[in-house]
């Protein structure tokens, strides 16, 4: 084993200097390999090229659309470019949070549904010029999107029985939100009833189904997410 005359310690290494005092070591090493792996300098992570190109195209098209919008602002004095930009961002959300995400599928569906509802409601409120058509996002899209999401998650739970517990919380969330359109109808924020009723009845149906057939799971799930 190597030895440091100054520190009077044996050093188990094949390096030439003492880790304590940095003086030259004497003697021959015992090991062929170091006791611990050699230090490698940190390599910075670089974005893969395809991701870079896609990101570049996305950003430049957003800038291009915005530029055209602003240059022609006198002829069409509103920010129509926000609609395609919203679409592009939503597309990216689908890729990032829908396809590439490692989160469970119920979470992804619930998240994308929520985003879609928000974006379409924003478009509705800012760009619907025909008066009779105003409120389409709240009247139709919101309840029907909730209904679709509810249907999809229930279906997934039904086929993937083993891991259904993980999905329950998202299903419950969607079910709770499905009540909102009905409330909006009775407070006269929305005017069309049938989409809200469809979403609401289906949500109640699912809720009853869970309460009847998975009473323990739902209790456990709520307890674990909401324990204080």
């Amino acid at each position: 084993m190597k030895y440091c005359d100054k520190c009077k310690v044996k050093v188990n290494t094949s390096q030439s200097y003492c880790p304590l005092c940095h003086q030259k070591l004497t003697g021959e090493p015992d090991l062929e390999q170091e006791f611990y792996p050699k230090n490698v300098t940190n390599i910075r992570k670089i974005l893969p090229l395809t991701k870079k190109i896609l990101l570049f195209i996305t950003l430049s098209s957003i800038i291009l659309i915005l530029t055209i919008n602003l240059l022609t602002y006198e002829n069409t004095p509103y920010l129509w470019s926000l609609i395609p930009i919203g679409a592009i961002l939503y597309f990216w959300s689908i890729v990032r949070y829908g396809i590439l995400s490692k989160q469970n599928i119920a979470y992804r569906l619930a998240l994308l549904t929520a985003l879609l509802i928000i974006i379409l409601n924003l478009i509705d409120q800012n760009f619907t010029t025909v008066e009779e058509a105003q409120g389409w996002a709240l009247n139709y899209v919101t309840p029907l999107a909730l209904f679709a999401c509810n249907l999809a998650i229930s279906f997934i739970i039904w086929i993937k029985r083993i891991n259904y517990r993980e999905y329950l919380i998202y299903l419950i969330t969607i079910v709770v939100f499905s009540v909102v359109p009905v409330i909006l109808y009775y407070t006269q924020v929305i005017t069309i009833l049938w989409p809200s009723i469809i979403a609401f009845s289906f949500a109640i149906f699912i809720l009853l189904f869970i309460i009847f057939f998975y009473p323990k799971s739902i209790k456990e799930e709520i307890k674990k997410r909401l324990h204080i």
Binding site: V9, V11, T13, Y36
Partner: peptide, 11 residues
Amino acid sequence: FEVEIVSNYVE
């Protein structure tokens, strides 16, 4: 004391 040293040589 006899002391035996091991280091990961991060310097």
